[in-house]
Simulated assay, not measured.
Amino acid sequence: MNNQSESIFSKTISPVYQAAMALGGVVVISLLAKLVGLTGITEVPQSFPWMSAASFMLLFALFNSVLSVSSKDLMKYWGTSIYCFLGLAAAAAGVAYVLSSLSMSEAGSYRWIYIVVGIGYLVFLSLMAMLRKIVEFAQREEWNQPRIRRK
């Protein structure tokens, strides 16, 4: 048995796979909520699929930006990631619309939530790219000994 545990950060997980998992989560959670609402166990708001879509978009944004640190070609990863985020946003909105029978405007403030999550995603990606550059610079720098200050 292999005693070495591999970190998730040592692997590059495709943004397409991440988006597919997030969309699957939106569908499963929304359908389960619809089923719970139909059985009468508890009351589920009609706008719940929109909340589920926004939540999984935020999860995608967080995990995708963190996992971008381990990518070999950052610009290619970013391009794929942004297209996957846009596809996820559109597909999740479609699922939410079909399951809730509410448009984004009718569901409340979900248009603004989509905008905030989109901007937050770009901020997350930028922060991770900056963090990656700082780490690469620190790894290239030679650390011989601290400089002695004159008093």
Score class of each variant (00 low, 15 high):
1 M>S: 15
5 S>V: 13
7 S>I: 05
8 I>T: 03
8 I>D: 06
9 F>P: 02
10 S>T: 13
11 K>N: 12
11 K>I: 10
11 K>H: 14
12 T>L: 12
16 V>L: 06
22 A>Y: 08
22 A>H: 04
22 A>L: 12
23 L>K: 00
24 G>L: 02
25 G>M: 14
25 G>N: 10
25 G>I: 07
27 V>C: 11
28 V>Q: 11
28 V>E: 14
30 S>A: 08
31 L>P: 03
32 L>I: 05
32 L>A: 04
34 K>W: 13
36 V>G: 01
38 L>H: 08
41 I>L: 13
41 I>E: 08
42 T>L: 13
44 V>G: 00
46 Q>S: 13
47 S>N: 13
48 F>M: 14
50 W>R: 00
51 M>D: 12
51 M>K: 14
52 S>R: 02
52 S>A: 15
56 F>E: 08
57 M>F: 03
57 M>W: 03
61 A>G: 07
61 A>V: 00
62 L>Y: 07
64 N>G: 10
65 S>K: 05
65 S>W: 02
70 S>W: 02
70 S>C: 00
71 S>N: 14
72 K>M: 10
74 L>H: 05
75 M>F: 09
75 M>Q: 11
75 M>H: 10
76 K>D: 12
77 Y>D: 14
77 Y>L: 04
77 Y>R: 13
77 Y>M: 10
79 G>F: 04
81 S>Q: 07
81 S>E: 03
83 Y>A: 08
85 F>E: 09
89 A>M: 12
89 A>Y: 04
90 A>S: 13
91 A>Y: 08
91 A>N: 04
92 A>R: 08
93 A>F: 01
93 A>V: 02
94 G>P: 03
94 G>A: 09
95 V>Y: 01
97 Y>R: 15
101 S>G: 07
102 L>T: 01
103 S>V: 02
104 M>T: 00
105 S>I: 15
108 G>R: 08
108 G>L: 11
108 G>V: 09
108 G>Y: 12
110 Y>G: 00
111 R>Q: 11
111 R>Y: 03
111 R>D: 07
112 W>G: 02
114 Y>P: 00
115 I>A: 13
115 I>Y: 05
116 V>D: 03
117 V>R: 01
121 Y>R: 03
122 L>M: 12
123 V>A: 15
126 S>Y: 08
126 S>L: 15
127 L>S: 02
127 L>Q: 11
127 L>C: 04
127 L>M: 09
128 M>Y: 06
128 M>F: 15
131 L>Q: 09
131 L>I: 01
132 R>H: 12
132 R>I: 01
135 V>T: 03
136 E>W: 05
136 E>A: 12
137 F>R: 10
140 R>M: 14
141 E>A: 12
141 E>N: 01
141 E>V: 06
144 N>D: 11
144 N>I: 14
145 Q>F: 14
146 P>M: 08
146 P>I: 07
146 P>A: 10
150 R>W: 11
